[in-house]
Design a protein around this nucleic acid. Structure first.
Lengths: 192, 192
DNA sequence: AGAGCCATGTAAAAAGTTACATGATTCG
DNA sequence: CGAATCATGTAACTTTTTACATGGCTCT
């Protein structure tokens, strides 16, 4: 017996991420791209080649609309804003309780799993290289924390900035732990 | 002017993960599936529907070979082992220095970014739910650590078990930090 | 005999990346 | 005026997931 194919769509996380960002403030696809790859980059991101088709799809679904505005003389840009239906879809997604996602993949950890196949020299070289990259990244995150007006918000009211602040805090904690792990590994490997 | 399409293949991480596992020990696709989804699950994983085609591809590329063995009377299984070319490809991949990968995506962090759109009650409910799930996961990892014969290997020689041990240690540290972050968030949110 | 696991595949779709493609604006 | 950035798209491909599909083995 043959079964019917069932059309199921996936999580559509990008869809909801876009709705959430546009819900904060109307913007163009280009703006959205920058928000994803600068502000949200520590937990979600997307290339413009994924964003533009998704904006079209969301428009077709009636969850967002756009207004064409002129930048200068000729350049048309599309300023997207969320619709009532879009707001509802976003809030529905937001309040849904999710199970744990699968642990994120990590190529470096995968390589470390195969450590026995490397020479001690190569192992240490690789660990130190990763350490340098991670330290650099952590510094950037810490600079962002210092330079942003988050500090005054801590333990204060719930404002849009509060979300920015706690996810940045989480990113810093995560990066510090990665570095701690690298340091512990290096120490153990050096002593053998 | 039209440009020629360039055939580029991607990172092929699954390819190298499979080579690495088979390099440790010859096994079937089914065994491989279990290794991925039980042992490596904290940094890499794959469904059987991805593994079987990849095994075929690697066989065609001459990086692995198989021997058909019988399980019982009729059931044929394919026992894969790595070839010299496979070993070389694996070691080349292993010793290559990689730049940092993009930060892993995380739907819960994404939702937290949008925290201003939730009620305090809903926020706390969601945080506590995630906390329970994460604690459960951490306990499992800690149990694995205790039950495995890793402890005796610490600061000892480089053996296959050493890779298992340090990645598990990293997974535990990562999970603890996630929990710490959730706890800090909950504390801050409750006090406002 | 039936449940649960062992064992191997393919098809279709979703999600994401890289490359192709074009043109306007801004600022030094 | 040139470089960087703003701005919007499509095509081709890789990677991953979900569903379809089948059948043997083991243990109770």
């Amino acid at each position: 017996m043959k079964y019917r194919k069932v059309m199921v769509d996936g999580m559509r996380t990008l869809k909801h991420a876009i709705l959430g960002v546009i819900n904060r403030e109307a913007m163009t696809g280009y703006d959205l791209m920058k928000v994803f790859n600068l502000e949200l980059v520590n937990f979600w991101y997307a290339k413009h080649s994924q964003i533009y088709p998704e904006l079209k799809k969301l428009t077709d679904e009636g969850l967002i609309t756009y207004e064409t505005v002129l930048q200068g003389e000729k350049l048309e840009k599309k300023l997207y804003s969320i619709t009532e239906a879009g707001k509802e879809a976003f809030l529905r997604w937001l309040s849904k309780q999710d199970l744990l996602e699968p642990t994120p993949k990590d190529i470096f950890r995968l390589k470390v799993y195969f450590i026995e196949s490397m020479t001690k020299e190569d192992i240490l070289k690789q660990f130190h290289y990763q350490l340098d990259l991670r330290k650099e990244k952590l510094e950037k995150l810490e600079t962002t924390m210092i330079e942003h007006p988050y500090a005054r918000i801590i333990s204060d009211v719930i404002s849009p900035l509060y979300g920015d602040y706690i996810v940045l805090k989480g990113a810093i904690m995560r990066e510090r732990t990665y570095i701690d792990w690298l340091l512990e590994c290096i120490k153990e490997i050096e002593n053998c």
